[in-house]
Design a protein around this nucleic acid. Structure first.
Lengths: 241, 241
DNA sequence: ACAACTTCGAGAGCACTGCTCTCGAAACCG
DNA sequence: CGGTTTCGAGAGCAGTGCTCTCGAAGTTGT
């Protein structure tokens, strides 16, 4: 996963400098936001010429990509760390939700970078899809565990259960999500209805965190903690908690 | 609501030019995104010196604010236009949801401007909260109508109904939302549980639309239309559909 | 150990940005 | 018609991403 080994002094200096650049860029990101991230400022803070950093980073967009995957990885780590196998499913769900929100509140700039509007003219390359799926994986695993534990799916199936929307079509549309973990060799395929409910819960979480962090609840919700805890509870019953 | 009336030729030219600037800025926004919006480019396209546009727009941020309130207003118009009083509550809900998503898909740059990460260093001024609440108003009205029609609130109240979270605290935390319409002289205060469920549904909608538009469902969901329709149905049962 | 080769840092430079200031030419008003 | 305000244009400042060149290091093979 890591580069082989810094043998020569040059390679040592190289990995060290790239690390310093990354670190300084992360600080800049926190201070001025993603779109105002300036390669020149990073160079200035590091005491080197602006042109020198181009030896280590291809372009500003490449730097953004590095920060992006670092962000995904860090968030995924935080989510995984919140999961203790001895906890029951409900506790794990709440831990997951709170870990997501806490991470986002602790470093809102990173949340904005990951789940806010994409930086204009910047298309995230393939490198980012791997870490991005790592974030969703703990949620999928929870869905899976609910299924194998035999917890019945969310509440009543709703009116579209009466034959309106053909279930197979939805199952087909969500197949990549349902079978993501199974394809990786971990556990069974998740049932379509469960997958849909999970995606809905995921959407609600991302929406709630974004709305809070981006200030859209500013004079609307007075107690964010209380509101989010309530939301987690409601989503849990939706998932068949 | 509008300026009095352009009496002199100068005033006529002024409103005309500001309109042209706004229009051109909107096009630029669609082409290069919010953060890359350039006042100089707008001036260039309009055949005037870059310094001349500063006679009409205070700063780049002020221009962004104008685009912001124009976006909120346009979205609010679209949502209101989707509501036909003769429709039943379920139909109105689906119309509202689809109107939101359709508007966002038709002009993703505007959606990103409104609900994506805030432009760095830019703090939305007071002018924007009015139009922003206009967007949520149709959803609140629907909640209100459900309440007066006597539709029971969402499914089972969940485990926190067993006395864990004191209901009054949540009601207090969401009071500004519950009483927003009532304070404006329209209809009753919305019950706390209903308000919470409405906010949850709103979060899910914003999250789903953002995740779709920002490419986070790229290799996950194969049929966006089908998925979103299903989501609307599920949220409807959550709301007591 | 020394020459050949590669990597690196620094500086100049290009085209671009937001924004300010000045200055002469219009348009307005009494 | 004269005084006042508004306007457009240009120059200029400080900043940006990025490219190119050039001399100084470090690395490698013989």
């Amino acid at each position: 996963m890591d580069e082989p080994a810094p043998r020569t002094a040059r390679e040592r200096a190289r990995v060290e400098l790239t690390r310093a650049i990354l670190e300084r860029a992360e600080q800049q990101l926190a201070e001025v936001g993603p779109a105002a991230l300036s390669l020149r400022a990073v160079a200035r803070d590091l005491g080197m010429a602006s042109s020198a950093v181009y030896r280590y980073v291809d372009s500003r967009d490449a730097l953004l990509t590095l920060l992006l995957v670092a962000g995904y990885d860090d968030l995924a780590d935080a989510l995984e760390a919140s999961q203790r196998p001895e906890d029951d499913l409900g506790r794990r769900w709440h831990a997951l939700g709170h870990a997501l929100r806490d991470w986002a509140r602790a470093q809102p700039h990173r949340w904005a970078l990951l789940y806010g509007s994409p930086v204009p003219g910047y298309a995230a390359p393939e490198t980012t899809v791997g870490p991005a799926t790592r974030v969703v994986a703990p949620f999928l695993r929870l869905l899976q565990d609910r299924q194998t534990a035999g917890v019945e799916a969310g509440a009543e199936a709703g009116d579209e259960g009466r034959g309106r929307t053909p279930e197979p079509a939805l199952a087909q549309a969500l197949l990549p999500v349902s079978s993501a973990l199974a394809d990786a060799g971990h556990g069974p395929v998740i049932e379509a209805g469960r997958t849909a409910d999970g995606l809905a819960a995921w959407s609600a979480l991302v929406g709630a965190v974004s709305l809070e962090l981006f200030g859209h609840f500013n004079q609307a919700v007075l107690d964010y903690d209380l509101w989010f805890a309530h939301l987690l509870g409601r989503l849990e019953t939706t998932l068949g908690g």
